[in-house]
Design a protein around this nucleic acid. Structure first.
Lengths: 145, 145
DNA sequence: TTCATATTTGAAACTGTTACAAAGTTAAAT
DNA sequence: ATTTAACTTTGTAACAGTTTCAAATATGAA
């Protein structure tokens, strides 16, 4: 489960690998579930008794700035974080709250999009609906996820 | 500037056209600027002295539910509202805060996306960067827009 | 005119996030 | 070892956008 190269990964992005930062990055690398801040904090707090939620926020913000991870702001129920920085879309299930990767994306270049004179710095594609499991369970009532 | 069919438009979507609702919908139909709640409220409040911001929130929420408009949640700085419900992308300028339509979109169907067993209810494509005007003005410092 | 129903209001609550000053940690130079 | 400077972390409070909710108001049919 432990990735010994987490500190190196942070260093390669110009991030000083403090104990807390390594723990947060490690969680993201080993749990590809697009977790929220709360999920990360809840998972790490028991074993790192001195961890505060602000530090999780600070670390994630720094990682995003240094392009070590990407942030998925698919709704207003808490940002999701993804250790995979490759360009890809995301699907969020409105029943279970799960976020799925969508890798088969049809990206167009700037000219094709009709944005020739723009400077594009970010592109995000978000799908919403119900995942296969929840479709089967007919969990179409909307929860708070 | 006035669109006499606004009430009919609301009715055709199963929305009772109260005075306030017509005013909000009318603003959206005549001002295709993807306004925020604050923008709409600030524009209408002077002429409709009894209007409250909660009513703007309530009306917009109802319109979205009834699919009379669509909501653009491109960042956490306030939702944008679009009277055009056609499937299209949006670009937000990080300097001036303007939101632009991106109509030339490469939509794939569910199978092509690899989401065959999912039930998709919504798709949003968001671009960020700098619009032509701000590129020219070299307004690349980030504001709070 | 009365009554039932729907709409609107305004204040308070709520949520995710950020700001900030104080406290703690780290590691190099002495 | 001790000092020092720079950085990291904490915890509280602030903040913004949005929602909740009970009371007040408006609407329209009987």
């Amino acid at each position: 489960m432990k990735n010994p190269n987490t500190a190196d990964y942070l260093l390669s992005h110009g991030i000083k690998p403090s104990v807390h930062r390594v723990a947060v990055m490690n969680f993201l690398l080993n749990n590809r579930i697009h977790p929220t801040v709360d999920t990360i904090y809840a998972a790490l707090a028991p074993s790192i008794r001195t961890l505060s939620k602000t530090t999780v926020y600070n670390s994630l913000k720094l990682f995003v700035e240094k392009e070590a991870i990407q942030v998925i702001e698919i709704d207003d129920k808490g940002a999701r974080y993804d250790a995979c920085c490759d360009k890809h879309g995301h699907f969020k299930c409105l029943a279970c709250g799960g976020v799925f990767d969508v890798f088969k994306m049809p990206y167009l270049n700037q000219d094709e999009l009709g944005l020739s004179d723009f400077k594009i710095t970010d592109c995000q594609i978000y799908y919403k609906g119900y995942c296969p499991d929840c479709v089967k369970k007919e969990m179409h009532f909307n929860s708070n996820n």
